[in-house]
Design a protein around this nucleic acid. Sequence first.
DNA 1: CCGTATCCGAATAGATACTG
DNA 2: CAGTATCTATTCGGATACGG
Lengths: 113, 113
Amino acid sequence: MSTKRKVYYCPVEFTLDQIAGKWKILIVLQLRFGAKRYTELIKKVRGITPKMLSQHLKDLEQQGIIHRQIFAEIPPKVEYSLTKEGEKLFPIIDSLAQWGSVNMEKEKGSEIV
Amino acid sequence: MSTKRKVYYCPVEFTLDQIAGKWKILIVLQLRFGAKRYTELIKKVRGITPKMLSQHLKDLEQQGIIHRQIFAEIPPKVEYSLTKEGEKLFPIIDSLAQWGSVNMEKEKGSEIV
DNA sequence: CCGTATCCGAATAGATACTG
DNA sequence: CAGTATCTATTCGGATACGG
């Protein structure tokens, strides 16, 4: 659970704890372009396994970052979307993307396996 | 080692891989306010152990984010500072801090252990 | 003072198979 | 379709001791 209470000495530390790991931000990134279903996310968030996706979707929902909507249909349909809270992560994503674009360039020339 | 090569499908993923974990950003955060010595960092980066600090300082140096300067003195003196590359992480840190300040407030009222 | 080495347990991540 | 269950692999992290 990500509901452990602890003392945070600074806001940066707090945020890191909230969004740590390689998946949460990538999930939010995908949802930025509109609500998505579980299976869509599995495809779009490359490399994620069902287990990791479930786990992080649950966490993110509890944190109030995403919203989970169930449609009572056959076949079942569940859509995930960002809350207002979640949208506030955009600046973080943008800064990560910005830095990444610049520094990925630098790695051109090194081999990619 | 953090030198494994892999394919990155997007800049955000690349960045996350570079700065993942709870320590790297916190170390950079401290160095933002000026060069610091090993022992100072141990004190300022609350909770970090010698092992983790060494490990991440080494990583960060290899990534070109920090600079390690050795002074030939007795007693030995080593100072760590940010490179130009490292300073480019400021926008990320700022956005993390911004989000954190806002959301830490919301947790007032919940108990802190 | 500035680290490194080793050991070990805990936590995380991942592959894969299976279910309502 | 939307997940869980299970099992294993990998990494993280802390304690402690030691070296230049």
